[in-house]
Design a protein around this nucleic acid. Structure first.
Length: 814
RNA sequence: GCCGGAGUGUCGGAAUUGGCAGACGAACCGGACUCAAAAUCCGGCGCACUUCACUGGGCGUGUGGGUUCAAGUCCCACCUCCGGCACCA
């Protein structure tokens, strides 16, 4: 048969239809004895259309899934929708579309695009987090958290736009102002909200980044998580309020400097501050709280107010003034600090601004105390003027002073974390209703499990005003108290959408279960995830919340694993032509569907994988799409014109072609097994095709019959449409991804002779040819006798000759 | 400020364990085919020299040092860029 011209639409649309018509095609085999392989790509938010970041993420996962199938694994490869979220509500306000309708039509559109890309998902496992069948179990987890004391209520600040009279999400605050009222500064208001005690697991979350995830997760993700958890060891010390029963507890990492404390500073939100301040001071505190939200990090000017009250240093007995300061944070440590200007830069700054005393108490280990410091000395040293603890090195002083505080009952050694409990309440409509009821008699009462799910009402007005759209829906809000049966009101807040994505990959194991989130047996079979793949933007929040969830689920006895994913791969961002991340607001997005229309899905996938290594940010240079496109065409034409032609052949050409084939199999296999640098795998396939075309005229029928099927199989994970079409043209049956991955025959891959570079004093001077398996002595002899080497050794003394077998000869002369 | 990552041709990148720097592709230049163009095929393509030419050696992986027979790769110091955290006590 003659060469066939490549037509991407004809081939891809044909196979898309066939694949779609077989719902079992990519289903994992429940009765299989093959080892399991669970690969999950982070589920998308259905924003409307696929973007290039999705295409990159899913092309990587799809190549891997197909490869693992071909390696004989029982592969589970699901997809779903992270369907709750703010943009749906914005769409409702801005274009008068119901969030649910908007979301569902987006899902349909994106699913259509995924089919067009040829991704191998088992759609029977599809989940959508906005369906009651799914969020039912968010509510169930909420009840379990509540039972275990992991869910609690407390006052927390929310962003409030006085113009809209509504709560704003952080994303809706732009430069400290409301997104819809660009000149209206956002205020901070305290609201009772639900929190989950992730801090209870802070220590384990931190420890397991070392013990369980190192090696399987990227170092930078682990480091970001450790940073986020932010464990810090220090002391909590009580300063007694002069003339009152209260104590002010401060946290410090440098209790050894406490004799240098010249004031105590409270966060403006601190409850004691409210009592100590007069009206003017309270107004000032309120102003500090609001301004803090509006100024970006880094450019805060220190501000403070003296309360007019004093506290007593429990070590020295000194009386120190109590201030409030805008740089002291309520939600870190105890919300109060002791200021030691001589040994802390921030305190030094504060002291200079407000004229506070600077009292040095630490000298350098090999120096003297600087009585009049011009800057804070923050290093470790030796204590001075520190009562009975004077003359001690920092670490010893801390130990002894902690013990002293504990013995006297005014303090102790303490650990503080930067990570805060997870505030999950959102004053939004499009999310999971929090299954709680407020009863005037009984207080806060959980919805009984049997009454779950609490479903989201459809008929809601989106005015963009008020506390939460749900709070206005009387039929939803009015309920009988499950405990006393009197009239009560439902909680009108919904859950943070990060709750939905914290456990979705467990639901894939048992997506239609209506009596439990999933069955433990099936989860234990598939977990931990063998490979989780997603954007590095989720390195902290999603990945820490889902680790927290896994630990809670384990403690509930639902699962046996401690971590959700044994291996994590974070692909880089896709950058627009201007070098910054592709985003709608920057206007530098490239629509994948346009590319698919022009070049086909195979070329699009190949382009994305070939551009660079997948963990790196990918610069978008569309002009280079020609390479991958030509490669697809060349393979197609090469196979079709050689698939059944007569060929006499030449043994030497056959040998060279088969050698290159097997070297390529080895290379591509290694890339899959070790590092997923698909750019080099694809380069190797291009080299193979170059060699095959060089040898084409002299290849025998027998060699072609070995080469063509293997060539097609090797392209399977990257260009599934092309591979499937060629597989069929070759007269083979069964989908490509169910075939065995080609094996490298080392004997065939072996070169006939070695070509070895020869250096003199480390500089390349010649290449010699040597028989395979030549001894070191032989190589040395050939190298020394080489005509190109001789001019560099003549008249000189050969000091030594280094022979690296099969690699290189280096002659050292003097 | 702290933590992490990265700097290689005109561009994306390759060199996986210290052993031939620039694979593969893009762009560009030249040639063949064509009335012409596209497509395709063939050749060239780090820098500055040298030779009529074949060639020949020199320099070259952010900068400066070092280790080594041998350094893009290891060590020390520094510069730049990217990402995260950031008055975190």
């Amino acid at each position: 048969m003659a060469e066939i011209l490549y037509d991407h639409d004809r081939i891809e649309l044909k196979w898309e239809e066939r694949w779609k018509s077989d719902p079992d095609l990519y289903r994992a085999d429940a009765s299989s004895n093959a080892p399991k392989y669970y690969v999950v790509e982070m589920l998308p938010y259905p924003s409307g259309r696929l973007h290039m970041g999705h295409v990159r993420n899913y092309s990587i996962g799809d190549a891997l899934a197909r490869y693992m199938w071909m390696q004989g694994y029982n592969v589970k490869h699901p997809m779903g929708w992270d369907a709750f979220g703010l943009p749906a509500e914005n769409a409702a306000i801005q274009r008068n579309m119901h969030p649910r309708d908007w979301t569902i039509s987006n899902i349909a559109e994106m699913k259509r695009q995924m089919h067009r890309m040829g991704f191998a998902y088992d759609w029977s496992l599809e989940i959508s987090t906005c369906e009651p069948e799914y969020y039912h179990w968010n509510q169930w987890f909420f009840l379990k958290m509540h039972e275990r004391g992991l869910a609690y209520r407390k006052n927390a600040m929310v962003n409030w736009c006085p113009e809209c009279a509504t709560v704003l999400a952080n994303e809706q605050v732009v430069d400290g102002c409301c997104w819809r009222h660009e000149t209206t500064p956002v205020e901070q208001r305290a609201l009772e909200q639900w929190f989950w005690k992730i801090t209870e697991y802070a220590d384990e979350l931190l420890r397991d980044t070392f013990d369980k995830l190192e090696g399987g997760w990227p170092e930078r993700v682990l480091s970001m998580q450790r940073n986020w958890i932010g464990r810090s060891e220090g002391s909590e010390i009580d300063f007694a309020l002069e003339g009152g029963p209260e104590k002010i507890r401060v946290f410090t990492t440098r209790v050894d400097t406490i004799y240098g404390a010249t004031c105590v500073i409270l966060a403006p939100e601190h409850p004691i501050a409210r009592k100590l301040l007069d009206d003017a001071g309270r107004a000032k505190a309120k102003q500090m709280i609001d301004t803090r939200k509006q100024t970006g990090p880094g450019d805060v000017v220190k501000d403070g107010v003296f309360t007019g009250h004093y506290a007593v240093n429990p070590y020295s007995g000194d009386k120190v003034p109590i201030w409030i300061g805008n740089f002291v944070l309520m939600d870190y440590g105890t919300g109060a600090i002791m200021a030691v200007p001589a040994h802390d830069e921030r305190d030094f700054d504060f002291a200079k601004t407000f004229g506070l005393e600077i009292r040095p108490v630490i000298r350098p280990v090999d120096g003297v105390l600087d009585e009049n410091p011009q800057a804070a000395f923050t290093e470790y040293g030796v204590t001075e003027n520190t009562g009975s603890f004077s003359g001690l090195p920092t670490e010893e002083a801390r130990r002894k002073m902690n013990a002293h505080a504990e013995a006297r009952g005014f303090g102790k050694a303490a650990i503080t974390y930067r990570i805060k409990d997870w505030g999950i309440s959102r004053q939004r409509y499009w999310g999971t209703p929090i299954p709680m009821i407020h009863c005037a008699k009984c207080g806060v009462v959980p919805v009984p499990e049997k009454d779950l799910p609490v479903t989201l009402p459809y008929d809601v007005k989106f005015t963009g005003k008020g506390r939460s759209p749900l709070a206005e829906v009387e039929s939803f809000m009015n309920v009988k108290c499950p405990r006393c049966g009197t009239d009560a009101r439902r909680e009108s807040d919904t859950m943070d959408t990060f709750v939905d994505s914290s456990w979705y990959f467990y639901r894939y194991c048992d997506p239609r279960n209506s009596t439990a989130p999933f069955g433990s047996a099936t989860a234990n079979k598939w977990f931990p995830i063998d490979q989780y793949i997603g954007g590095v933007t989720h390195a902290i929040l999603h990945l820490i919340y889902s680790r927290f969830f896994t630990k809670v689920m384990r403690d509930l006895g639902l699962i046996a694993n401690d971590e959700p994913a044994a291996n994590l791969f974070t692909q880089g961002m896709v950058l627009g032509s201007d070098g910054s991340a592709m985003s709608k607001s920057k206007g530098n997005v490239v629509d994948p569907e346009e590319m698919v229309g022009k070049y086909g899905a195979d070329t699009c996938r190949l382009f994305v994988l070939f551009a660079n290594a997948p963990e790196k940010d990918m610069p978008w240079i569309e002009s280079s799409v020609g390479g991958p496109r030509k490669f697809v065409e060349r393979i197609f034409r090469f196979v079709t014109r050689n698939m059944d032609r007569e060929a006499a052949g030449d043994a030497a050409a056959d040998r060279r072609a088969l050698r290159k084939l097997h070297q390529t199999i080895r290379k591509v296999t290694e890339d899959f097994n070790n590092r997923w640098h698909f750019n080099t795998s694809i380069a190797a396939l291009m080299e193979l095709l170059n060699t095959l075309q060089d040898e084409e005229a002299n290849l025998s029928r027998a060699a072609l019959d070995q080469i063509l099927p293997d060539l097609v199989l090797l392209t399977g994970p990257f260009t599934p449409y092309l591979a499937e079409e060629l597989w069929e043209l070759l007269g083979r049956s069964g989908p490509v991804f169910r075939q065995s991955w080609p094996k490298c025959d080392e004997a065939v891959a072996q070169e006939d002779a070695l070509e070895i570079p020869v250096q003199v004093n480390g500089k390349l001077r010649a290449r010699i040819s040597a028989p395979l398996g030549a001894s070191q002595a032989e190589l040395e002899k050939i190298a020394l006798a080489d005509a190109k080497v001789l001019p560099f050794t003549e008249g000189k003394q050969v000091v030594k000759v280094i022979v690296v077998p099969e690699k290189l000869v280096n002659i050292v002369v003097k």
